[in-house]
């Protein structure tokens, strides 16, 4: 027992102690088992050493290990493998009906797979020249090699074209068609007057942009009320080429496709074109001036979402 304890306390001496231990158990196992053994685990490990537990049903492997294989094992194996195609072909000819269908499908898939693997191996084996590598696009000088490659915003391609488009008020936009907005949807009629009988005031129910220096008309004469809660100063603008989004200040509402009245009022709905301040993006014109204002189209429903998402028109 002392021996067992010592083996628990110091694993280094474990083996030697165990050997001694087993001898003592073999001599008088009943006596030992009667003893109180504190650690159940150690008993288990001990017993597994004494009577090794084997996985079941590995008698074939066991036999091979013990006696080796039959003399003609390899030859038979080779022949069987060589014959396999013939057996398979014979099978394919013999089968009919649903089984044939399934079998042929399986063979077909196997053949495709095999051809693919062969091709892959062939590709791996033939030696490629270093210059077979395709030349990548976007050449950069040596001093820009290995630098963190930020995708660069292209310089505005053609200023004249842009100006012309501006004049016509037409842009090729990501959202070419928008749902029409009825006046009833945008404007809520407000009843005014002592008896609440006048109905000439309108409350705008959509998101609006109100310029920096805007002062309201005296409330008595204000026909269109733009609630403070629905006013926005900034928009989340995505640059399609950079694939990055920036929070940019809105400069103005350029065009609301639904009605010129909405444009005038600064109503921002889905599809509206707004002008945003892109100076922090660092875009430059051909003459090297920093581009300041640029157009973007709103892509979400600001009145529902509580924010404005837009795509920059490049």
């Amino acid at each position: 027992m002392t021996c067992l304890k010592s083996c628990m306390s110091s694993p280094n001496e474990c083996n030697a102690a165990l050997r001694k231990c087993t001898i003592s158990i073999l001599i008088d196992s009943t006596k030992l088992l009667c003893c109180q053994i504190t650690s159940y685990c150690s008993l288990l490990s001990l017993s597994s050493r004494i009577f090794p537990l084997k996985p079941q049903n590995e008698y074939i492997e066991e036999s091979i290990k013990k006696h080796g294989r039959r003399m003609d094992h390899d030859e038979k194996k080779r022949k069987k493998e060589a014959r396999e195609v013939h057996t398979k072909a014979a099978m394919a000819q013999k089968l009919h009906g649903l089984k044939a269908k399934l079998y042929n499908k399986k063979r077909h898939a196997e053949k495709i797979q095999m051809k693919k693997t062969i091709k892959m191996h062939e590709e791996r084996n033939n030696k490629h020249k270093a210059d077979d590598k395709p030349v990548s696009e976007g050449a950069v000088p040596t001093y820009l090699l290995d630098r963190e490659n930020q995708t660069r915003a292209k310089v505005l391609s053609n200023m004249i074209k842009q100006k012309r488009k501006e004049k016509a008020g037409k842009w090729s936009v990501p959202l070419p068609k928008v749902k029409g907005l009825e006046e009833a949807e945008v404007f809520k009629v407000m009843k005014t007057g002592k008896k609440q009988s006048k109905q000439w005031k309108r409350l705008i129910t959509k998101a609006t942009f109100v310029g920096e220096g805007f002062t309201r008309k005296p409330p008595k004469y204000e026909r269109f009320i733009r609630p403070m809660a629905m006013r926005y100063k900034k928009a989340h603008v995505t640059h399609p080429e950079l694939a990055a989004t920036f929070c940019l200040p809105i400069l103005s509402v350029k065009k609301n496709p639904n009605s010129p009245l909405y444009t005038q009022l600064g109503v921002m709905t889905k599809g509206t074109i707004i002008e945003v301040n892109v100076s922090e993006l660092g875009l430059v014109t051909q003459s090297g001036k920093v581009v300041w204002g640029k157009y973007a189209q709103i892509t979400n429903n600001p009145e529902n979402d509580g924010c404005i998402n837009a795509v920059l028109l490049v």
Binding site: V140, P141, L144, R152, K154, V155, Q286, S287, G288
Partner: peptide, 12 residues
């Protein structure tokens, strides 16, 4: 003098 004219980055 400012020499504008290139339509993209001037590498060299």
């Amino acid at each position: 003098n400012d020499l504008p004219g290139h339509s993209d980055e001037v590498f060299a």
